[in-house]
């Protein structure tokens, strides 16, 4: 029983981290129509910045500073890169971010080297949160969940309760009208892109020390968050939320079950499951879980 509970908590905490990543991607996609291929690279940058800042002044300042830095870089990329390619269409924008992912990875190699850096969980968050019979659950996992939930509630409130949130929502569906009403839509785009990157950066700050901070981390997580966006339904935040938790739990439980089929254990195929889910969903429900549009 406690095994089941611990695995569920593991699944949810991983799923929430995935959602922090995919929410930024989904927001940017639904607003700008740009699929940011470098999104996972911003996740990586977040982890590295946090490593650097926490080595100098500590983890807590890093928790704030690193996402802000990543967000600032994101805004610069939007302003001086994406906006230039915008006239060439969405494919060019996607390819721009694709090239950017290469460049960020090389830059990380250059600055921080090619092996893992020593980015640790801070001492005050290191240790067991609670024990259930024999198993203990680390504080840091609990902290990750807390941060994710806080951020998500904040975003939701910001989108539905603030003026800029309403403008963003309006710009999602009616950019011309919003422009006509005197709002600076390009600036909204820049803010949203920067915001999405900052979210990825924050995920990097709390994911980088929970797992590992190394140059391959972007490539490891990238395809999964794209799958989440497809499975949840392109551009649907709620869909991305459900898909993130689903995939987080699915991968966790695939590992813990000892079922096997034709000599292959389900734990061996765990990483393929998200892709299988995506293929099945496309055959039976092409819109995705909560998507509203096809195409």
């Amino acid at each position: 029983m406690e095994f089941f509970l611990v695995q569920t908590l593991n699944g949810i905490s991983y799923g929430l981290l995935l959602f922090m990543l995919s929410s930024g991607l989904t927001l940017v996609f639904s607003l700008m129509g740009v699929l940011n291929f470098a999104h996972a690279s911003f996740y990586m940058l977040g982890a590295y910045f946090a490593f650097q800042v926490s080595a100098k002044i500590g983890f807590w300042p890093a928790l704030v500073a690193a996402p802000l830095l990543v967000g600032a870089i994101g805004m610069l990329v939007e302003r001086w890169g994406l906006r230039q390619v915008h006239k060439h269409g969405h494919v060019a924008e996607l390819l721009f971010t694709f090239g950017l992912a290469y460049l960020i990875e090389e830059a990380v190699h250059l600055i921080w080297g090619r092996s893992a850096v020593e980015y640790r969980v801070p001492a005050e968050l290191d240790g067991p949160l609670f024990r259930i019979i024999g198993s203990q659950y680390p504080i840091y996992r609990g902290f990750m969940m807390l941060v994710s939930v806080t951020v998500l509630v904040t975003i939701w409130l910001a989108l539905t309760r603030t003026r800029i949130g309403l403008v963003i929502q309006a710009a999602l569906t009616h950019p011309q009208t919003v422009e006509a009403l005197g709002h600076n839509v390009p600036r909204v785009f820049m803010l949203v892109f920067g915001g999405g990157c900052a979210l990825a950066g924050l995920a990097g700050v709390i994911g980088g020390n929970a797992f590992v901070t190394e140059p391959g981390m972007a490539a490891a997580v990238g395809p999964i968050i794209f799958v989440i966006v497809v499975v949840g339904g392109m551009g649907s935040l709620a869909g991305a939320f459900v898909a993130s938790l689903l995939i987080g739990c699915m991968q966790t439980f695939a590992v813990s079950l000892d079922w096997s089929l034709a000599g292959i254990k389900i734990s061996q195929v765990a990483p393929v499951l998200p892709y299988l889910l995506m293929v099945l969903l496309l055959i039976f429900r092409p819109k995705g879980l909560m998507g509203t549009r096809e195409g």
């Binding site: 969405h90 996607l94 395809p223 966006v229 497809v230 998200p274 995506m278 293929v279 496309l282 195409g295």
Partner: peptide
Amino acid sequence: RAGTTFALISLG
């Protein structure tokens, strides 16, 4: 699917 979704599926 076409467009961006096609791109993501091919990646998957």
